[in-house]
């Protein structure tokens, strides 16, 4: 009996030691990989795969192209969707034009509201190049409300929420641009 307990304890200890060693030796690399992967995903939002990212504050990221600031990526969200919070990344250049918008978390109805997701439809790409003055303020709405963005048949609430969230994000950027560009982590 004693021998069996000792055997299993020894085996468990050896297994634990091996796992810890592997974990310890890989930890640094894994952290770097996670950062690189996250940056790569974010830069895809901005459509600038070869740019650099530096994290500033409140999960905002400065985009640098050739050491020069080229824009900011920051998270926005809205609760006015059909179901739950819709979370998005918004990338804006220094002129206040949208480089890209991506939904990264939502629970909208599959087949209807989920067309805001790039994996489902290209609708979200319509925002590229838009700014507070293009279209003018009346255009920042879905077509049913007299604006210039498409709604989906059967789902108006979701795109309406996204359009107003993006517009609010642009307004936020306009107000805080100077401060956001200067802040450091």
């Amino acid at each position: 009996m004693k021998r069996l307990v000792l055997q299993l304890t020894l085996l468990a200890g050896a297994c634990g030691l091996l796992t810890s060693l592997v974990q310890y030796s890989g930890a640094e690399r894994i952290k770097l990989n996670q950062l690189a992967y996250r940056n790569q995903q974010l830069l895809q939002v901005a459509g600038l795969p070869s740019a650099d990212l530096t994290e500033s504050q409140d999960s905002r990221f400065l985009i640098n192209v050739a050491q020069e600031p080229a824009g900011i990526i920051f998270p926005i969200s809205t609760d006015r969707g059909y179901n739950g919070t819709i979370k998005l990344w918004l990338a804006v250049n220094l002129q206040g034009e949208i480089l890209g918008v991506r939904v990264y978390a939502h629970s909208e109805t599959p087949g209807l509201g989920d067309k805001i997701d790039l994996q489902v439809a290209d609708w979200i790409l319509d925002f590229n190049g838009k700014s507070l003055i293009n279209p003018a303020i009346t255009g920042w709405a879905v077509k049913r409300d007299g604006g210039s963005f498409d709604q989906f048949s059967g789902a108006t609430i979701t795109p309406r929420a996204v359009v107003s969230a993006v517009h609010a994000g642009l307004t936020q950027f306009h107000q805080h641009q100077q401060q956001w560009l200067q802040e450091t982590p």
């Binding site: 091996l18 796992t19 592997v22 974990q23 890989g26 690399r29 894994i30 990989n33 996670q34 690189a36 992967y37």
Partner: peptide, 13 residues
Amino acid sequence: TCADILLQSYWYE
């Protein structure tokens, strides 16, 4: 577990 950690270290994507 070791394979999982190694995969994260060298084949993260």
